[in-house]
């Protein structure tokens, strides 16, 4: 049971053309056993945020701010920790499932071999213990026939199966926090449902904390108890998931939930908000170009943080309701 605390996390990219902020001063608190969903469009910074948490940012990217981890096996700050500490944490305390599954599996090694390599790195076991651990791991992610998976190469498996193998790899070190980046974009509807069910079961059985990054509100609805909505690198709204979806305050979240509801109820929906572009204004609210509630002050001042009842929090000058 681990606790993760993030304060003012910012991710910057340095290039010849200047500095670009991809994630802007995010703070969040993940209690033990929590299931947090981070929602947002492409370009909102949600993937960068997750990679920053495990310090797997690409070259040229820099992070500032504080990440604090408290668990039985490790306590302390990891935002600027050195390589050794990070190697201990990754896999053993924080597990990560990447968005691009086929790229994260080695195509020339059989799945069994890849998985046992990971298990062996995080635990010292004898040969027989390793084999048992491998089989248990595969069964725990929902494979009924572990032998078949162990002998298969990744390309021989379907998308849904590959997803589960990647999940098994992330869980091999028995981490206390699992970060899953867009788990269902490459999966069909049935596989997606199976995956969410699997995650739910896992959380129930082991008390795992999960951060799931997704743009699909269905995943949020079926899985998460907390939700953080990101837009253009900033956290614009957060709170208990069910409550937030039911009654969002921020205009962007309202747009999302309205669209989703229209989809579910088979109703036409014409969002008259233009598409997201990379050019966000320098000051003021970042959503201003698409916001139906915008006024003059939105262009000039950054919206303040408002905390309301029930753990709800949002940044807006003129929330609708």
């Amino acid at each position: 049971m681990a606790l993760l605390e993030i304060k003012n996390l910012t991710v910057l990219r340095e290039s010849e053309t200047g500095q670009k902020t991809l994630v802007s001063a995010i703070s969040l608190h993940l209690p033990p056993g929590a299931k947090l969903a981070i929602c947002g469009e492409s370009g909102s910074g949600k993937t960068m945020l997750c990679r920053a948490l495990v310090r797997l940012l690409p070259r040229g990217f820099r992070l500032t701010g504080e990440i604090r981890l408290e668990s039985g096996r490790f306590s302390g700050k990891i935002d600027h920790a050195d390589q050794q500490v990070l190697e201990f944490i990754r896999g053993r305390i924080i597990g990560f499932v990447f968005q691009d599954i086929p790229a994260s599996l080695n195509p020339v090694l059989k799945c069994g071999r890849q998985l046992s390599d990971v298990i062996a790195t995080t635990q010292t076991l004898s040969r027989t213990e390793l084999a048992t651990a491998l089989e248990d791991l595969l069964v725990s992610v929902g494979f009924e026939n572990p032998r078949r998976i162990m002998d298969a190469f990744p390309f021989e498996l379907s998308g849904g199966m590959q997803q589960r193998v990647a999940l098994a790899m992330a869980l091999a070190g028995k981490p206390e926090i699992l970060i899953v980046d867009e788990p269902s974009t490459a999966l069909d509807a049935i596989a997606r449902r199976d995956l969410i069910d699997l995650l739910n079961r896992r959380c129930q059985e082991t008390g795992l904390s999960v951060i799931i990054v997704t743009h699909d509100l269905l995943n949020v609805h079926k899985f998460a108890d907390h939700l953080l909505v990101m837009y253009a690198g900033e956290a614009i709204e957060s709170g208990p998931a069910a409550n937030l979806i039911e009654a969002p305050h921020h205009p962007y979240t309202q747009l999302l939930t309205a669209a989703w509801r229209a989809l579910l109820n088979n109703q036409p929906f014409s969002p008259n908000a233009p598409e997201f572009t990379q050019n966000v204004p320098g000051r003021g609210c970042r959503f201003v170009t698409r916001c139906p509630n915008r006024r003059k002050v939105c262009l000039e001042e950054s919206p303040p943080m408002t905390v309301s009842a029930g753990g709800r929090c949002f940044h807006c000058h003129f929330p609708s309701k």
Partner: peptide, 14 residues
Amino acid sequence: FSAQDLLIQVQLTD
């Protein structure tokens, strides 16, 4: 619709 964000899906459907 598969690879797209919710809002883009909706706009495309429209």
